[in-house]
Amino acid sequence: MSVMEPILNVEDLQVEFDIIPKNAWPWTRPLKLKAVNHISFELNAGETLGIVGESGCGKSTLARAIMGMVVSQQGKIVWLGEDLRTLPAKDLRDRRKSLQMVFQDPLASLTPRSTVGDIIAEPLKTHFPKMPANERKEKVKTMMVKVGLHPDQINRYPHEFSGGQCQRIGIARALVLEPKLIICDEPVSALDVSIQAQVINLLMRLQKEMGLSLIFIAHDLSVVKHISNRVMVLYLGNVMEIASSDELYTQPRHPYTQALISAVPIPDPEVEASKEHLLIEADLPSPINPPSGCVFRTRCPKAQAQCAEQMPELRNIQGTHRVACHFAKG
């Protein structure tokens, strides 16, 4: 690996939500829900980091916390040498130029009463208010061509497009400022499989053309494998494992990752039937009251007494492969 300065460095990030129980007195202390629990990672320029995990494991919260849309309680989000958490709101808005986001629901993320042209032009209007209108329109049209939309559709409205097209509009809006990083929060979960492939290939192509970094959140492991250089596995707000994509899929070390990967269906009925499935018992524990020690121990097939007492550190076991399990061997 080259000695490159990472463009994004998240250190010990923690996000808590206050949960006010039903029928509580006004003076009772709200319960704390730890959505993101001491997460650290870094991201290099041009790299794609996949984030996977079950529903409710804090993937989206992590993304929103990096964008500053959710208040984080502790830690650092160092973006190009500046800690975004300590920046005043005005500067934070300005930094958004280089840090954009693509959302899960393609149609819901577009303002229903604006035309596509206005939607894609909004970042330009916000950050370059003095740009002449025709130049802005030109930029929007080029961007539409780039993401595979017809520039003649500039005057149409979001409800006149299909889901895949809407997601292309969302991507165009994120890219029009030529950012350095795009956070994709489950960008393909709402699309059907053939469209998923189109959108992912589009993202990969644009990444190459524009030298983007991506944070790609999904719960579909095969999608993440296709696009990511490195993958981070989250469980209940904690990092279970980070490794390069190849290594994680061929040699998962954490029992949770192993179970996740064995659950990925293989599109061949014979192989699928003969494959060994590692089933995980029980449901996700409540994040308000997480298990002591290792958060995964209640469902872990390898759990021992040690797991309930001591939280496993996220430790390097081989190169950049990091695992949070007492029993993972290098």
Binding site: R64, L92, K97, S109, T111, P123, R173
Partner: peptide, 17 residues
């Protein structure tokens, strides 16, 4: 809580706008 409002926040649009 609609995503298009979040999208506007993510773009960096001012609250009043």
């Amino acid at each position: 809580r609609k995503e298009y409002i979040e999208a506007a926040v993510a773009i960096g649009v001012k609250p009043f706008t």
